[in-house]
């Protein structure tokens, strides 16, 4: 499923796009969590085709994605990054989006579209 298709379906708006080409990239996996320790513990494979879905709009969600080599984050519940965190995101070369859907709603839509749960090898 291309990022473009997914984002349209969940009504996501762009917070920052580092690389427009990534919108045509196929993503297969999603990890949904507000606790970054869980994301760090449970995402071990296919990180380049994994999307982080979170309501934690701060520097630590960016750092977590950076450590895991995840290039795309979708913030749920209409969360926005502060200007400072957005500057950090630009340095890290992420593609960031926000949707007004809740974590439950967004997960449901993505699951129906065929996205799979990110996890271990």
């Amino acid at each position: 499923m291309s990022a473009r298709e997914l984002l349209k379906k969940i009504g996501a708006r762009t917070l920052y796009t580092f690389n427009e080409e990534l919108l045509d990239k196929e993503y297969q996996f999603v990890f949904a969590a507000d606790l970054m320790s869980d994301a760090l513990a449970m995402i071990n494979a296919n990180t380049d085709s994994t999307i982080l879905l979170t309501g934690l709009a701060n520097a630590q969600s960016l750092r977590t994605a950076e450590m895991l080599d995840i290039s795309m984050i979708i913030y749920v519940r209409g969360k926005q990054l502060s200007e400072t965190d957005l500057e950090l995101a630009k340095e890290m070369e992420f593609n960031l989006f926000s949707t007004n859907l809740t974590m439950f709603e967004c997960s449901g839509v993505l699951y129906q579209m065929g996205m799979k749960a990110a996890g271990n090898d």
Partner: peptide, 9 residues
């Protein structure tokens, strides 16, 4: 609040 404290560290 920062997203930690899951006891997984």
């Amino acid at each position: 609040e920062m997203g930690f404290g899951a006891g997984m560290g």
